[in-house]
């Protein structure tokens, strides 16, 4: 078996405060984007999001993991860490995606000008459009993390 097939780690738990957590660590490779996308959308379905919100979560997770893969430092051992937590009291799903890439200067983030047929920055633009809260943190040389929140009955 390809050793990469063994390198997806899934840890899930439900605590007494009615929170539900899933943690995943996957190789920073294109083949694993769909693994994360499907795992988190299945969790969203369990937590009671409607079909439209599940699709939004699926798209946002795919875009965030894709960005992490694209901006990775292309080292074989590099991984992406995903922590997803549903809070039953707040009725919100909080997803944190962290990479070990080189980071970047946030001044370089583009807003795509669709009317001029520019597609640069489309992934982050989509995430910001469909999630209720988005926080991006990046430090040169230390990787990037994005925290995205989707609320039941939100955006």
């Amino acid at each position: 078996m390809n050793p990469l097939h063994e390198s997806v780690y899934i840890d899930s738990s439900t605590d007494i405060c009615f929170n539900e957590n899933i943690s995943l660590t996957v190789p920073s490779l294109p083949a694993y984007v769909s693994v994360v996308r499907l795992a988190i959308s299945a969790m969203a379905s369990r937590c009671g999001f409607d079909i439209e919100a599940i699709e939004d979560i699926k798209v946002a997770v795919a875009e965030a993991v894709t960005n992490a893969v694209i901006h990775s430092s292309k080292q074989q051992s590099e991984t992406i860490k995903i922590d997803s937590k549903y809070d039953y009291l707040k009725r919100e799903l909080r997803i944190k995606i962290e990479d070990q890439g080189p980071g970047f200067d946030m001044k370089h983030i583009k807003t795509p000008d669709i009317s001029r047929l520019e597609s640069g920055g489309l992934g982050l633009f989509i995430i910001r459009s469909i999630m209720d809260e988005v926080k991006l943190n990046t430090t040169m040389g230390q990787g990037t993390s994005i925290v995205m929140v989707k609320k039941i009955g939100g955006n």
């Binding site: 798209v59 795919a62 520019e118 597609s119 489309l122």
Partner: peptide, 19 residues
């Protein structure tokens, strides 16, 4: 069933070429 920003970027590129 599913398309991401890389797929949309491909379609934007096609529109640009055909325009």
């Amino acid at each position: 069933n599913f398309i991401d920003s890389t797929g949309l970027g491909m379609l934007i590129g096609l529109v640009r070429d055909l325009k």
